[in-house]
Amino acid sequence: MTLFFEQTLNGLQFGVMLFLMAAGLTLIFGIMGIINLAHGSIYMVGAYAGTLVITETGSFLLGVPAALAVAAITGIVMEVAVIRRLYRRDHLDQVLATFAIILILNQAITIFFGRQPLFAPMPDAFSGSVELLPGLFYPVYRLVIILVGLAVAAGLYILINRTRIGMLVRAGSTNRDMVRALGVDIRMLYTVVFALGALLAGLAGLMAGPVLAVQVGMGEQILITTFVVVVIGGVGSIKGAFYASLIIGVVDTLLRAYLPGLLRQFMVGSEADALGAGISSMGIYLLMALVLLARPKGLFVADS
């Protein structure tokens, strides 16, 4: 039972990391109509910036603003220089252009940092583990990730539902032309939304630093799962992204943890392990297919 609880926590932790990525992606996709493949690259840039500052200064606290600022600035530059030209183009052009950004940023990182993965040191305050239940020791850092993710979700909820910017964002995702007709500077709004999405991706990258390897191409690994989250949650819906991230995180983790064991009841050990691994890596895509069958627009359609 403690093992199940621990695996659920692991799933939640994976889920909130996905949420930080998906929140930005779904906003950008839903409000601006842009398929931003380079969102993962911003995650990578944030991770590198954070790791660089943390290893140079030895202070995790300094790494936080560095990662967030660099990610947000990268986002703004990307929006102003490239994305702005793509709003009226079709999705194929957007995919091509943002794919090009992936290649450029990956190569730039390779030139500056080399191909060897980096590793951000764990902040001392969070390096131990705590006993949550008798016999269940859970790393503090992963608990911190969960808490930060939930706090960001709450903050976004307030921002979107209780502030003027949030109102414009919601309006923009429902009817772009009407918002523009009412005299709102939609260009500015787009830049702000893009920067916010980039900031969240940078935060995810920063927090991933001490757990995962900081390496070229790390963004592409998480990007596909993030798109699955966005589709399941409903394009443009932060609420949908939140629930979908947690569902995907928990489902993926539990499938990985328990499916081989279940299959071993019916078949030989090593075959069950291999088949279980295969099916569990398909799991989230099957889930996506099922959700789309039942609700073609995702679980939560934006502001319906």
């Binding site: 093992l3 621990e6 932790q13 998480i222 983790t253 990985r256 081989p260 691994a277």
Partner: peptide, 21 residues
């Protein structure tokens, strides 16, 4: 125990829990 991970996996928390168990 015999576990097959993914070639693009980054988070191994689930596997760690299985090993500890």
């Amino acid at each position: 125990g015999e576990v097959y991970t993914r070639l693009d996996q980054t988070d191994f928390a689930a596997e760690m829990a299985q090993i500890r168990d």
